[in-house]
Design a binder for these strands. Structure first.
Lengths: 341, 341
DNA sequence: GATAGGCTCTGCATCGTTGAAATGCCGGAA
DNA sequence: TTCCGGCATTTCAACGATGCAGAGCCTATC
């Protein structure tokens, strides 16, 4: 049985198509008599509005795209969850797309015009997108970026204060009496701005404490996976001056990878080496030892991004593209402070 | 600037709308002369087909919905990734929705007709959906279920052989000489069919080895999160006969939670208690100790589900709803076999 | 030289819905 | 009794694309 159309309901109820539409949408006043007839017909035929037709008419799809590098990286999965939930509150549906870190796919996804790609707007967590790429975007649909502002981009972006977050993490290690604090995850090149800010925070914490930064303890990694953390830590363990006594990792996966290498080398966490992560993924809570980490306020990030996107969509906001800040906090767990046995 | 329409391109190129459409879609032969003019116009105006209009005309949206309980549970995140990737191969886009384990939301999402919900089809990983719910579905769009067949459901479903997978895991523990093997995650009620099959496999392995199952070592859990595993393990550690010497957990989160409780109690993994998980999530590889686990072939699951859904969509398949089986394998790691130091 | 046949190319109708404007109907005021 | 205002309801024309049928035109054939 083909799906019932407005037309079929109208025939059955003996009214015009428009009246059925009015009943369904509650737009215009309708007499009780006709309303009842229409509602009965709707129920009998199991009528459901055809969303695609409605979309065409409205020029809106009710879909927003969330583009992340990898959906199965816990941080992005948790963020995706928050975005999906928040968007639903506003009646929007989220299409999750992943770029697998391929610049081409990132480009492709943001370049497409909204009407072409059927999304009303895009929330993008860029990995390898350059300022030039963004400037070339000619799409008319709104775009909100997650993460650092890409220079003088003309788009809104939602982020946390990475400098102070990293400083917070590093200061925590300093306060614990650690003296040789390593950092894993620096990315000293164009698309690694977030990492660079964390390195800056790491340095600031040292300056504040009157310490010098030992550059040889800052290990860059191209990606932020377990294996990168494990490998970087191997390097640190083999440091000419001996292993550091603390490591600040730029995300939790790096940190868990780092802990793995440390334990494998027969050292203890946190007694020999304290480890701090970043992102506060769920797995860190139940890891042994549980992970001290910087927790960005993911629900806030999702909410800021969705709300700003929808504001742009409805044209409510004429403000210039802005930086929107979400909060963060340090969550201290066993990887820096051993629990009382 | 409003987005260019077929109409605008036609005007500019001095041809009919239909010809532009033909050029864009490559449907009909077009002379080189006109093709060039059209292509030039397309480029100048930055024309992009309006997907919503196309969808309306075709009666297809190119969207499939993937409905999972929780997007940030690693298994579902990894599965979602595979589904998104596979669907893209076929030109489909995936909308990820999560039910948060609420039966009402599950119902709502599958009940809606495809044309209403704008999805061409739905892939559902049900948590709390009963046979009755499914029978009441009146939607016309195809639905593929992930997980156990719900009785004589009229839908395709993709699963793995949970009985033999669980038997494999348990046999592994038996082969290691473990004698008191616990199980965490049984769900002895209607919607817990997958868990029940795993329990069955666990029992079979015992039977094969001529062992008796100690029912007091089978701990049910309502959910499959870290905390459930940790709590269930507390119970086991306090068992009147003393702790078991092995635990088979029905997913990796339970297993990691279990390991946490074991280590917190001052016992060792695997020396004192060996632990096996299920799902082979990425975090298990880098956990310390790394996690022995049953690895379902997620790419195969995704592929089977997507391909079957699309086959139903195109009407290629008249076959009765079937069970489609994906493979699995046991991955042995440190949580059952200590690595050579 | 007329006709058939093959190519391009165009116009019209349509997908299912909603915006805008027109219609019909009623009661109340003049 | 007539006219007007207000309300319920309907008609018409889109939204932007594609399926179909047929109109031109050009070449090949008898």
């Amino acid at each position: 049985m083909a799906a019932a159309r407005l037309r079929d309901v109208a025939d059955r109820a003996g009214v015009s198509i428009r009246t059925v539409s009015n009943v369904v949408n509650g737009y215009a006043p309708v007499s009780d008599q006709k309303r009842e007839r229409v509602e009965a017909a709707v129920a009998e035929l199991g009528y459901r509005p055809n969303v695609m037709a409605r979309n065409l008419k409205h020029g809106r799809s009710g879909l927003i795209a969330l583009v992340v590098p990898e959906l199965d990286v816990p941080y992005f999965a948790e963020l995706a969850r928050a975005v999906v939930t928040t968007a639903r509150e506003f009646g929007y549906t989220v299409v999750v797309d992943q770029t697998d870190g391929e610049p081409d796919r990132e480009r492709e996804l943001i370049m497409r015009d909204g009407s072409a790609a059927m999304f009303d707007g895009v929330i993008l967590s860029p990995l390898a997108l350059s300022q030039t790429d963004l400037a070339q975007r000619d799409a008319t649909s709104p775009l909100v970026l997650l993460g650092e502002r890409i220079a003088d981009s003309e788009y809104d972006h939602v982020t946390i204060d990475n400098i102070s977050a990293a400083r917070l993490a590093t200061s925590h290690l300093i306060a614990l009496g650690r003296t040789r604090i390593a950092a894993i995850g620096d990315q000293p090149y164009e698309t690694g701005e977030t990492a660079q800010l964390r390195t800056r925070g790491y340095e600031l914490a040292h300056e504040e404490a009157g310490r010098l930064v030992d550059r040889s303890l800052v290990i860059p990694t191209h990606r932020f996976h377990f294996s990168d953390g494990a490998e970087a830590t191997e390097l640190l363990l083999a440091h000419p001056d001996g292993p550091p006594d603390a490591i600040f990792c730029y995300n939790d996966l790096l940190a868990i990878g780092a802990i793995r290498s440390i334990l494998a080398a027969g050292l203890r966490v946190p007694e020999d080496i304290a480890v701090v992560g970043f992102d506060n993924i769920e797995a860190g809570r139940y890891h042994t030892p549980s992970l001290t980490t910087v927790s960005p306020d993911k629900p806030a990030i999702a909410r800021l991004a969705v709300e700003r996107l929808l504001a742009r969509l409805s044209g409510d906001t004429d403000e210039a593209p802005a930086e929107l800040w979400a909060g963060h906090e340090l969550i201290v767990r066993e990887s820096t402070v051993a629990r009382q046995a």
